[in-house]
Design a protein around this nucleic acid. Structure first.
Length: 429
RNA sequence: GGAGAGAUGGCAGAGUGGUUAAUUGCGGCGGUCUUGAAAACCGUUGAGGGUUAUUCCUUCCGGGGGUUCGAAUCCCUCUCUCUCCGCCA
């Protein structure tokens, strides 16, 4: 969430930023500023009333204890006390009135503020422009004659079974079997190890979250429809490990020495993916339940070096797997609600002849930390909101798909060298 | 699921109606001492909003509501935590 103080001071910047996005309700900003002014005025009035009330009460207290201590039961004093009480009572009605008004304005202001997404970074292009392809690595020319898509390979070598998933649960769920299961588990382990080596601390977290947690990281209300909801207990299944891991840090004040915080977690992720169909959901391309290893950082306001660090980290992992990949900077229309800048990582799938998104690295600047009430103390002693960053490192099913397709030969699938210590086999046949 | 207890500052822990933002201890920070460190001693140490220019006002003792001139303190309610019993990986 943006702060009103920020909007107040940077109105033009905010408007320009929002124009880059698919954000229609631009007039919200003016409405917010008007409400903000109104709120301040009411707050001032209320403070004056409270001041008067406090003073009266203080005086009454002094008189009572004076009377009591000297045990004099002075009639003059009693009369004075009564007089002050009456004056205080008169204030009460007024106080309630103003207070109600303040609550109303505050609520309205909050409601409007909730609807405003984060302001895109300067580097982010306008919604009408094409996404930037920043980097591409690896050969996407296929040197296999008739490469099979991963779902065919899976049939050939029995690695996973979508029909079983459908049988147990419904479409969009897959069952991993034998070497397929072990390959996935190895990848998870490999990613976690890589992240831990890069000084991310591992967390193992709940897969269910309450409404508050979803709100604090920005998925609620923005992406509520994408989440599975358990009505009986009022809980949501996590669409990403980012939610439980970020919420670990809410309401904290770090000292500048503690930053940045680096953390990683492996979780299953659950997404309803309403509206997806066809080749998009074929095989492992899009599942309702998938595995993901997530990394996050919490930094000071100088966050861009840490974003670069995360990008480099994911890049190196993809390189180590020998997968052709590219990095894309999303334009304003594709940017998530809380994000100020996002880099997508895509691996090339030889058989499907298309790019598959396997990671999304974002800087949420202070948008998320504002909701999370996540702050730090600078050297000077000033308390400031942190910046939060998150990324996949990495998402499993599509990595699996690309690995299988790109490493196939006539009669087997080769396993990348770095994974062999985990899989304990160097090919699948 | 049944019964009971509790929720106070970074942590521990006082406070049951009137200068209590809150005693005290630990931790943190600064200083004295020391070649340096430790110990000891001294000092300091919450956040938000408004206002003034280095002041003043105001809010916050789990959340919400109420009683009262006045609430951390009394009442109601919600949430959470703990203990015991039951069930169970």
């Amino acid at each position: 969430m943006l702060r009103t103080s920020f909007i107040r001071k940077n109105k033009e910047k905010v408007l320009l930023g929002l124009k880059k996005r698919n954000f229609e309700e631009i007039n919200l900003i003016d409405e917010i500023l008007i409400l903000d002014k109104k709120k301040k005025i009411v707050q001032k009035v209320l403070n004056k009333i409270l001041e008067k009330e406090n003073n009266l009460s203080k005086k009454i207290g002094e008189l009572i204890s004076y009377d009591r201590n000297d045990n004099r039961n002075d009639r003059k004093v009693s009369a004075e006390i009564e007089f002050l009480k009456e004056r205080s009572i008169l204030l009460k009605g007024e106080k309630k009135n103003v207070n109600d008004k303040l609550k109303k304005v505050t609520l309205l202001l909050e409601e409007k503020l909730k609807k405003v997404p984060n302001i895109p970074d300067e580097k982010v292009k306008n919604k009408s422009e094409k996404n930037d392809i920043l980097f591409q690595d690896g050969n996407i020319d296929c040197n296999i004659k008739n490469p099979l898509p991963h779902w065919e390979l899976s049939k050939k070598f029995s690695l996973f079974d979508s029909n079983l998933g459908t049988k147990i649960c419904g479409t969009g769920f897959s069952v991993f079997i034998g070497k397929g299961a072990k390959l996935q588990r190895s990848l998870i382990q490999y990613f976690l190890d890589k992240n831990i080596q890069a000084s991310y601390k591992e967390y193992s977290l709940p897969y269910l979250i309450n409404e508050k947690s979803g709100y604090y990281t920005g998925q609620i209300p923005d992406k509520e429809d994408q989440m599975y909801f358990i009505e009986k207990d009022n809980l949501y299944l996590i669409p990403t490990g980012e939610i439980p891991i970020m919420n670990c840090y809410r309401d904290k004040i770090f000292t500048y020495k503690d930053l940045p915080i680096r953390a990683t977690t492996y979780t299953s992720c659950f997404r309803r993916e309403a509206g997806s169909y066809g080749s998009k959901v074929r095989g492992l391309n899009r599942l309702h339940q998938f595995e993901k290893v997530e990394i996050i950082q919490i930094s000071s306001r100088n966050s861009s070096p840490f974003l670069d660090e995360m990008i480099l980290h994911v890049k190196n992992i993809l390189k180590s797997l020998n997968l052709p990949f590219r990095i894309i900077r999303l334009n304003g229309s594709d940017l998530g609600f809380s994000s100020s800048i996002t880099y997508d990582f895509e691996v090339y799938s030889m058989a499907q002849k298309k790019w598959l998104e396997v990671s999304s690295v974002s800087n949420c600047s202070d948008f998320q930390s504002n909701r999370l009430n996540l702050r730090y103390r600078e050297i000077t002693g000033d308390v400031k909101f942190c910046h939060t960053l998150n990324g996949s490192s990495l998402s499993l099913p599509r990595i699996m798909a690309a690995l299988l397709e790109n490493n196939q030969t006539e009669d087997k699938i080769n396993i990348p060298r770095v994974l062999v210590p985990y899989t304990e086999f160097d090919h699948i046949n």
